[in-house]
Design a protein around this nucleic acid. Structure first.
Lengths: 223, 223
DNA sequence: CGCCTATTTGAGCGTCGTCAATCCAGGTGG
DNA sequence: CCACCTGGATTGACGACGCTCAAATAGGCG
């Protein structure tokens, strides 16, 4: 199909498939499914049986754990190229987290069975998946470290420093309440922490836009 | 070698290798290294280059993240059969956590290169490793969930309920300060939380020994 | 038996969460 | 073009949970 041919062309751009031969890419394209999500649309929900592995093509979504009291803890923001749902290969598995689109998204889905076949057929694929999960796990460990040892202001400073920058300017890509949740803070606390950094002359905040005045002081604050 | 023959005999008991053929088991045994640790001995430390993957045979160790201020956050207790260090396959990788024996340990080590060979040679091994990491990751997610949504007493109750039980009796396998760290609490807070559960008539504590008087109330407290 | 460490207990404090009101921006419709 | 509306963000006041510091007690191991 035309769609598959076009898709096969875009697969090499995905880190997970980087360097694979065209035969394998074509086969992967043939068993993959495209998926689009509207803003706020839920891809899967905690408790549902896990059926597929996903790869982000465009857009952003959040992986979060809901609580009975309406709260949520955002575990991760997922960006283009990110792979998630590797645990689909565990037998009879149910999602621990919920995945919801933050903006319109396009992604690729591989169903359990097809993925199992792919892993059989393509040497090295399982290893790439393993790397992907390991890498993600390390991210989680770092988050745990921050949450355990750093104060609210320190975590906010750390987050600001991690954002991609143009000159000394950067921006918060997501809603502040979402970022707060990712950092394990209440929106109010996040707001106050930002304000603190402003008061100390380290940054300036204009809505989602942030000017960094003293990068080394920010780094010193975190460390 | 005799050691290898004996070792090959014990490998099937390890979940990771369950169901593999004897040829593969023999080969695995031949490339594995035994390792013993004395109590408190450090297996690897944060920041060191990762060289091996490990499998616990006997004993217990802790995986923890140290902080500059002498604190530590215990990420996990590892028990016989547990596999860790999968991220050794990431290129040029350094340990994020520190591994230290809580009691004398025996374990199996596979060096990076041998593990890479094994993954090539043994179909399905990469997948087993993937499952192992995925499974561990889920454990982390649950810990994050608890730390985010539950109070100190709730986390303690949850931990008590998870311990293996004989009748209505159970015991804390590790030092209380270690368990406290795993739960993201200070030792004092852990002690007071236990005391609270005692005061509420849910349990009795005698050193590391715990009697559970009202299991359903404990469960209700957690949920 | 004595030392050393783990644990417990107490007192006080600080950080962060909660609740409520206000402010602001973006989008919509008149 | 402007008024309105809605949801997010901010600010203030207050309280609580858990942390810190210090001392006392208990337990384990030589």
């Amino acid at each position: 199909m035309d769609a598959h041919i076009a898709l096969a062309g875009s697969l090499p751009a995905i880190g997970l498939f980087d360097g694979l031969g065209r035969t394998h890419l074509a086969w992967l394209a043939s068993v993959s499914q495209r998926r689009t999500l509207r803003r706020s649309e839920v891809l899967f929900e905690r408790g549902q049986p896990a059926e597929s592995l996903y790869i982000m093509l465009t857009g952003h979504l959040k992986l979060s754990i809901p609580s009975d009291s309406g709260q949520e803890k955002i575990l991760e923001f997922l960006d283009p190229g990110d792979v998630f749902g590797e645990c689909v290969l565990l037998p009879d598995h149910r999602w621990i987290a919920t995945a919801q689109a933050l903006v319109p998204c396009r992604l690729l889905a591989f169903e359990k069975q097809e993925l199992a076949d792919a892993v059989q057929k393509i040497p090295g694929l399982a290893l790439r998946l393993l790397s992907s999960v390991s890498y993600r796990m390390e991210g989680l460990l770092c988050d745990i470290e921050s949450a355990t040892f750093r104060s609210a202001a320190q975590r906010v400073a750390e987050y600001v420093l991690r954002q991609p920058r143009v000159g000394n300017q950067t921006r918060l890509q997501f809603h502040k309440r979402a970022i707060a949740s990712k950092l394990g803070l209440q929106p109010e606390t996040f707001s106050r922490s930002l304000k603190q950094l402003v008061a100390d002359g380290l940054i300036t905040v204009q809505g989602p836009r942030i000017l960094i005045h003293d990068e080394s002081a920010l780094q010193a604050l975190v460390a």
